[in-house]
Simulated assay, not measured.
Amino acid sequence: MSDNLSEPQIILKDLILKRDGFTLLANGVFEKGVHLITGKIGCGKTTLSMALAGYLRQESGLIECKNIEKTLLSMQFPEYHLTGLTLEDEIKSWGLSSDEILDKSELCGYGKTDPMKMSRGELKRLHLVCILSKRKDLLILDEPFSTLSPMWKERFCNNLAIQEGITIIFTHEQTYFPKTDYIWDIDSGELNYIGHVPECLDSWKSAPEYIKTALKKGVLPKNIRFEDTLEAICRMQD
């Protein structure tokens, strides 16, 4: 645990969440860095993301936030976030420059377009560019990779590497990952802390197949990205 009392931190104590007929129990501490939370579809990832963002009341237990002034939640479907009648209006609602964000999103020329006439993938990348451009102490991302093309998944992962504060990613993605500090898993109605990367990889049951294959060969990647695994295997062969 960090000794810096000024750094952001989230503490979960006997947290119990109930939604749509299931119950989720969570204990643990989230510190500065990138946290990846995996689990099967329907296990409670979205429920926990909403609770951590303050949009869902717990049945019991405690969510204690320290040194967190600004929290941003990215929901799976980008249309849930829409407030503007055009892409320009939507970007301005974030307090950002429409020209700059449209350029970064590769959507130049669509500023006057109705957001609902864009594809979900286009809306997703616009939303993610906006949310990564804002200051925040806590960033919660629920299935951020859904509807993104492989190229944009990779770009998004690279941009996450320069974020400050706490980043929590809820996903069942199995191919594209950012550099990650901590891994968690939701299984049988409980949030489990797997550990710090890379030491915890042997215990990560939901690890992608390329990591499992590397571990079977006796290779421990430095991180969870595919390129980390490839580098580790090549290093072993040398």
Rank of each mutant, 00 (worst) to 15 (best):
G195I: 05
S93V: 00
R125P: 00
L107Y: 01
S133M: 05
I16K: 07
S146C: 07
A161S: 15
T71R: 14
A214K: 04
G218F: 09
K153F: 05
S98W: 09
S206V: 01
D142M: 07
S105K: 14
T83D: 03
L48C: 02
G218W: 09
S203W: 10
N158V: 05
K153D: 04
R125M: 14
N27V: 01
L102K: 00
K45S: 10
N192H: 15
I140G: 05
T23K: 11
L72W: 14
E88D: 09
M236G: 02
C157G: 09
P8Y: 04
C108Y: 02
E154H: 10
T113G: 06
S6T: 10
D103M: 15
I37A: 04
T180S: 00
N67H: 08
S98C: 01
G42N: 06
Q9N: 02
S203V: 05
D99H: 06
F145A: 13
K32M: 05
L215H: 11
W152H: 01
K70S: 12
S49L: 09
E122F: 04
I10T: 02
I183F: 08
M118F: 09
I194F: 05
T229L: 03
S133Y: 00
K134D: 00
L160K: 00
P150C: 03
K104T: 06
E190Y: 01
N67K: 10
G54A: 08
D137E: 07
S97M: 13
